[in-house]
Design a protein around this nucleic acid. Structure first.
Lengths: 253, 253
DNA sequence: AATATCGTCTGATATAATCGGACAGTTTAA
DNA sequence: TTAAACTGTCCGATTATATCAGACGATATT
């Protein structure tokens, strides 16, 4: 619980180097050295070491992040049994609705978009697989927050707070809690303009044997999502998808 | 060129810990310690440090790789301008052909699948975004190898050799070179059963302003790819896709 | 209830990260 | 063309820090 053991500074710095390389999109020892305020020789050893790991490549004196990150990330995703069960069903849902579909899980108190599928009229809003957001900032995350064990929900709210992403993001804890109550009762969550202006979301949880595994979201332009009859259609299709994911997860079909 | 500066052992070990965590899919300090042959307390400090970086999460005493890898990998992919230009075109190609489409680039002398798109009758052969393979083992890689600057091609063949993946993989350098010559002349590459038994591939290079940027591949069952007329159709669609990628890359449409 | 095994933490020790400086190669300016 | 100012890579002395044995309470197992 407490944090008495100090982390290894060399390892932390190695990851700082990775961050710098991402930010500048490739650099040599000198540039890394000035950005991190360390001697040039030190920066060089880090870069040399990271190249050895395969996560950095040296491309004519210029060091860049390699695609090893993509490989490792993809393998993590493809090994996930929820993803395996969900992928084809999400694809169908994207084809049928034409909207942007997301599969979301909770990790370390945050929302992670494990997978996204796009339809023919999907929004393109910088949503990407692996994207991390606060759970309280959108309907899919709230569908998770509402169905986690209560003590876990409390813990997450306490440690992460309610940071606003737009002026519509819920920041009042009391309001969030009543919202979560109705989400739990209704079985789904809807909101718009809370994470990204102009984007509306419908989210519903995936529960298997009473355990929450994640949530599926449908994202569309706020205007479309606000339309009552269209929203009802989407909710029904969403629930159908979740049901078939659940069946496939349990029985493999 | 030589490797006189020794890499930092602590950083290398940190990445070894990540590898172990991947292999066992989550473990505590004790298990990591025995697998790496280090004291338990040492393993603990590494895990604690990696947790701090965000690439590892502690989930009830069990440490796992986090989805930060997926986030970083995706961001690298989405920032790539070739990917940005190619994605919608590859999607169309997948819809039209129904086959598995791959976008491949060269990195550190190897083939990296930057992106894949699946159609309604695509093979499912463990191909994933970020996957790294030898360049000589398949048509898409050979399309790259054939169109790289000659000295680069030589360098790659020399440093990486011609490791076989199946009994059909080309391992004779002379044969590979004559094959590369005809690929360069024809403008495309075809083979089957060389990387994975039962899979056939058509690959063609993406060249922009005389510079090789990568290659696009169409993968299907060996039987389908061997059919002359079908293969011709695929080649034409492939070339059309590459042309529109080129245009979009240069002029943004 | 007793024993084994777990994750976490402390403190002494010796290893390994650090940093100034040297060097050759390349780009920039004069 | 020359000179100056860069660059990336490497060496060696120093000292900060990764390492390791062992202790601790908490869980799991027997």
């Amino acid at each position: 619980m407490t944090d008495a053991t100090p982390p290894m500074s060399s390892v932390l710095r190695a990851f700082d180097v990775l961050t710098v390389l991402w930010e500048v999109n490739g650099a040599g020892p000198s540039e890394v050295a000035t950005r991190m305020d360390v001697p040039k020789s030190t920066a060089h050893v880090y870069l040399h070491t990271l190249e050895e790991t395969g996560y950095v490549v040296n491309d004519g004196g210029e060091y860049r992040l390699s695609h090893q990150f993509l490989a490792t990330g993809s393998r993590i995703k493809h090994r996930n049994s929820l993803f395996q069960a969900a992928e084809p069903k999400l694809r169908e849902l994207a084809m049928e609705t034409g909207e942007l579909i997301t599969l979301v899980i909770e990790e370390a108190g945050q929302s992670v978009i494990l997978h996204k599928e796009t339809g023919d009229r999907s929004l393109e809003l910088g949503i990407y697989s692996g994207m991390i957001t606060p759970l309280h900032s959108n309907a899919t995350g709230k569908a998770i927050l509402a169905n986690l064990p209560p003590e876990r929900t409390d813990e997450i709210i306490e440690t992460h707070g309610l940071t606003p992403l737009t002026e519509k993001t819920v920041t009042d804890e009391e309001r969030l809690r009543t919202e979560l109550d109705s989400i739990r009762e209704q079985g789904y969550a809807v909101d718009w303009d809370q994470q990204v202006k102009g984007m509306g979301l419908i989210g519903a949880p995936i529960e298997i044997d009473g355990e929450l595994k994640g949530a599926v979201g449908i994202a569309g332009p706020t205007g479309r999502i606000q339309d009552e009859t269209y929203q009802t259609t989407l909710r029904q299709e969403l629930q159908g998808t979740i049901d078939s994911i659940t069946i496939k997860y349990r029985y493999g079909t």
